[in-house]
Nucleic acid binder design. Structure first.
Lengths: 339, 339
DNA sequence: CTGTTAGCGCTTTCAG
DNA sequence: CTGAAAGCGCTAACAG
């Protein structure tokens, strides 16, 4: 039950089974070069001794550690947990395990953590670059010959593997939907153009409104850390031409806005159109249920993991960019009918 | 810029610096046994060659890998991301890194993943046991001499290290608050008593109502995966003595309930008292803002990580149980005044 | 099909 | 203060 637990190694197993260490090693990796009877004997010995494979030792000899690094800038956010779900789904199939580190949106910390991951010998990296990440980081990683795919945000417009939602398309869909529902004064609420994901949203917003010859300057920056921050919204509402619809940075912002409007006696879906982004589970059951841009973080995670695994198998100098395209989930906060 | 990148080892560094590998190793671990000039020479060599410490190799010799395993049963949930935030905060200080795996509430998968973590040589384990985890799992882990702390749920009432919110106390606070606000017919909405965290909530609920000589059988099980599931709520509302207040399993359920009530023309905070649990960020800005039991997942994570690090340093056969005590965050959905 | 022989990159005695 | 030598547990040729 509780002996001194003297590390049972592959060698002990081999001795127990009366074979050489090399043969035992072959059994371990289910090589076809071993006879059935030998294999059985070795497996029995492993079971009996309670053998645990030591990957650390194996890594030393081989190339891969069977680990990848996951560098996120806000592990506390629900959106990232969905992303991890998608990544996990793929890597678990490949018997790979993820080491999770948090850059907390701080480039120095991000660098420290990436170095730490390198020391652990990760086979690849999935990274959502912190705001302010220098483009040089990617080439530094590339020089180490460690595959790296960026998710959700990218540091360079052109180089490096990247997987993210098609934010521009999603925002464009939302704008068109609002226009179809007769909204003319559409505002964008939330965030600042501090990274690619925010810029792409704003670009889609402006471009689509411009194409429809509508106002495209109703952009209200807010602090995403503080959901009670509505920026210049109060001023705008009091202005001569207040917005009649809102596209929000994400569902969290949208929910918060709806709460705000409701407390002012305004009904989202009737008095204002409101559209969020991300389609969080709770958005289906909020009051009113929220129309939202589906950004499919799980799908982004899956694609990123698949791309990384592929890069690990066959290194390639080319850059792949995958935009996961979204749809609009129409509910009552804009365009949907009551159930 | 991009040479063949021939793995630079401690040996290359030593050669470059004109010392032996052993000396270089001492420098690496900032031993005081090395002269300043030698140290400087070695460090210069490391920089020049772009040396990367290989922990895998070091582990082989030493005992610790500098990794812990994090076994969660639903990495997609926002609640767990808060937990990870707390854990990360502590381990990052100790230069330890977390390998994250998802049991997806499946005991077999959980076991497979734990085995995988063992192979990677994790120094310890933080685990939120999946529903249906046998008590034997803990003794199996204990036999491997790998420290393990359970979080949020525990498999055994008495043995094993555990850190979690004081669910019973929290629920009790909520009940008392509702009673103070004149509610008499209090229902518990959500979940089933399938693990300790749910049982503790229900125990706190029943016990406190009993003490106040009020009905304590208004318990409405629901499927937490489906926020639109309100179980027998409709029947209950149509009964002769419908509830006038709800304590919900968590904020997600509470938000969903509030949406449901609002769509029926009922105003939470006026027509019904509603209390959630977890104090998610979005609960502060919902409509109406939600009164909630603070379960402090970040604090739970911090405590769990601290306990684990301590166990890794000094193994101990005793069981520590830490209940992180909570408070009530009073907002308008019950007892709070409009801002 | 199985065993022998070298290491992978590092830490750790033990001698200088 | 520094170096030589042994070995952590495993895999990868290469011989039989």
């Amino acid at each position: 039950m509780n002996g001194p637990q003297k590390a049972v190694t592959l060698n002990s197993v081999a001795v127990e089974a009366g074979v050489s260490r090399a043969t035992a090693s072959l059994v371990l990796r289910s090589s076809p070069l071993v006879s059935v009877s030998t294999r059985e004997r070795v497996i029995a010995a492993m079971d009996k001794l309670g053998y645990i494979y030591n990957r650390g030792a194996a890594n030393l000899r081989g190339q891969k550690t069977g680990t990848i690094g996951l560098v996120l800038c806000d592990i506390g956010s629900p959106f990232y947990s969905q992303l991890m779900l998608g990544i996990d789904e793929i890597i678990v199939e490949a018997s790979i395990v993820a080491i999770l580190v948090n850059s907390a949106e701080n480039p120095e910390r991000q660098l420290r953590q990436i170095r730490r991951l390198r020391e652990h010998g990760v086979d690849g990296l999935i990274i959502c670059p912190a705001v302010g990440t220098p483009e040089a980081l990617l080439s530094e990683i590339a020089n180490l010959r460690i595959p790296c795919v960026q998710v959700l945000r990218h540091v360079s417009q052109t180089s490096g593997d990247y997987v993210g939602p098609d934010y521009a398309e999603g925002t464009s869909l939302a704008v068109k939907h609002l226009i179809q529902h007769g909204r003319q004064n559409i505002a964008f609420l939330g965030g600042r153009a501090i990274h690619s994901a925010a810029r792409e949203r704003l670009d889609g917003f402006r471009k689509t409104l411009k194409r429809h010859k509508l106002r495209h300057d109703l952009i209200i920056p807010t602090n995403l850390e503080n959901l009670a921050d509505f920026g210049t919204l109060p001023d705008l509402m009091a202005s001569s031409s207040p917005p009649d619809a809102f596209i929000c940075y994400n569902d969290m912002v949208a929910q918060s806005l709806m709460g705000h409007l409701l407390s002012m006696g305004k009904m989202p879906g009737r008095d204002f159109g409101v559209i969020g982004a991300d389609n969080l589970p709770q958005s289906a059951t909020s009051f009113p249920p929220l129309t939202t841009i589906i950004t499919d973080p799980v799908g982004v995670g899956r694609n990123a993991a698949r791309l990384l695994l592929d890069r690990i198998e066959n290194a390639s100098p080319s850059s792949t960019r995958i935009l996961v395209s979204g749809q609009l989930m129409v509910r009552q906060s804009c365009g949907g009918h009551a159930p």
